[in-house]
Design a protein around this nucleic acid. Structure first.
Length: 238
DNA sequence: CCAGACGTTGTT
DNA sequence: GTCTGG
DNA sequence: CCAGACGTTGTT
DNA sequence: GTCTGG
């Protein structure tokens, strides 16, 4: 059995940045990525050997991923879909010093195609992060908890994103991503005014294809109402 | 015209 | 790199 | 969420 | 007072 993904990827300097506790946890999306590499490969219809070579093994029990960590993602290179790890926090190629700079973890569906920061990535560098859940804040100020959601009919689903590559002075590169958000559906609206765009297998492939901007944009809509399940009994304090 | 921004979300 | 704000 | 702005024009 | 920017 393949190992399972975890929250903390040791030996990776990119995940070990200096975000404060507050900075890490005020971010909108807390994503659940708890699946085998085979399950990830299956979702993207890729060979499990490729997943095994591109993605690291688990090194801990955590499964809630947040900004500043490395995420498994499918990207397209020379027309072929492959897997890699991307830093969550979009770091544009023109950024002078990625430490402390602007590194958004989300891109709005309404603006991702046109806003200067994202436009080129939208047309040329799209990715999909596999997930099997996400979390929304629940409760009153002072005692908020993270409420888990899953997609009723999708054990694994895809979170569309965009990525860019930042060249380090020493010649190394950091590939990073942002995940696309949209209006909430009726399941999420009680908790938040945004939600991640959620794609099934076919839609994920379409997002990774060279589809027209119009067709790409049409993928970025709220998940059908009633298709998400909340698990209040599993809510937790981070 | 040039300097500076360029993004998202919102809690312990 | 490209747009915007002063 | 809080601090700070809140107006206009626009160059050698 | 209300909007915007961070």
């Amino acid at each position: 059995m393949d190992p399972i993904f975890c929250n903390t990827l040791s030996n990776n300097s990119l995940s070990n940045n200096s975000l404060s506790y507050e900075e890490r946890h005020r971010m909108c999306y807390n994503v659940r990525i708890e699946m085998t590499r085979d399950e990830i490969a299956d979702f993207f219809r890729l060979d499990s050997l490729q997943a095994a070579s591109a993605l690291p093994e688990r090194d801990g029990p955590e499964k809630r991923m947040t900004l500043g960590q490395m995420l498994p993602a499918a990207t397209t290179s020379a027309g072929a879909v492959g897997l890699e790890m991307l830093y969550w926090g979009f770091t544009p190629s023109w950024m002078k010093d990625p430490k402390g700079g602007m590194k958004p973890g989300n891109a709005r569906a309404e603006t991702v195609a046109t806003t200067p920061m994202f436009r080129q990535a939208f047309s040329q560098r799209r990715c999909v992060v596999p997930a099997n859940g996400f979390y929304e804040w629940m409760g009153v100020k002072g005692s908020k908890q993270l409420l888990p959601f899953t997609a009723a009919d999708l054990a694994v689903f895809g979170l569309p994103g965009i990525w860019d590559e930042w060249r380090m002075p020493d010649g190394g590169v950091r590939r990073s991503c942002a995940i696309v958000t949209c209006d909430p559906n009726g399941d999420i609206r009680p908790y938040h005014d945004r939600m991640p765009v959620i794609l099934d297998q076919d839609e994920a492939r379409a997002w990774l294809s060279d589809a027209s901007p119009k067709d790409l944009q049409s993928l970025l809509r709220p998940f059908p109402e009633g298709a998400l399940q909340a698990f209040p009994g599993q809510a937790f304090k981070p």
